[in-house]
Design a protein around this nucleic acid. Sequence first.
DNA 1: ATGGTTGTATAACAA
Length: 262
Amino acid sequence: MSWKLATFNVNGVRARLPIVIDWLKQRRPDVLCLQEIKCQENDFPAEQFLEAGYVVNVRGQKSFNGVAVLSGERPERVVREFGDGLPDEEARLIAVLVEGVWIVNTYVPQGRALDDPAFRYKLDFFARLRRWFESRFTPGQPLIWTGDMNVAPQEIDVFDPKRLDGEVGFHPAERTAFAEAAAWGFIDLFRVHHPGQKQFTFWDYRLPKSFQRNLGWRLDHIMATEPLAAVSIQCLVDTEPRGRPKPSDHTPVCAEFDLEKL
DNA sequence: ATGGTTGTATAACAA
């Protein structure tokens, strides 16, 4: 029996509730990581997910950001803060231990613009994450780092690498920052299973017909340590929800594992 | 050209 994990930036969980619930019931992942829920914990529509058979853990804030993990099994542990002594005001991190696997779900800052303090905050967020991994985990344990990383790692991961070179989301500094965090011990599961495939997870609302024209970016990632990558069966992007009415600007990424071989 | 749309809010801000 395979074990399935998915990540989905929903861009407002209340606005996206019909799509997310419908998708969950069809795909039945064991774990679904959400980003940009855009609500406080008390406003999270937990009941519908409970009815669908999922346990809900949320780190929310008013209006912006916010992450959640839905899981078929109740997590043995839940972590909602870095706990590194630095300010942790934005709801961008939640981690759970489920069925022996640590799952770290992040909504990495978008960065806004190169000359905006948010861009430096984004770079620092990756460095902080790397230190956090170093202090709490080892690359030899089964660990997943997933979510909206807001970085397209390679040229193949954006629709026009020449035009977008240096833009936020594809700037060399943030590609390096992401790569250095991942170099702690993570493998990009989609790229392992689909080398050379141009496949996006985000299509900007502001570009006319961006999804239909496939003018997208691969910003959402499932990163796994070596033991988990070794038992991964598949990793794919499900573009179906992006084509629905009133979609998120992102679409889910899914991975499948044979945990019995761990 | 520095545009465009969407969600949370209920005027702007963030993405």
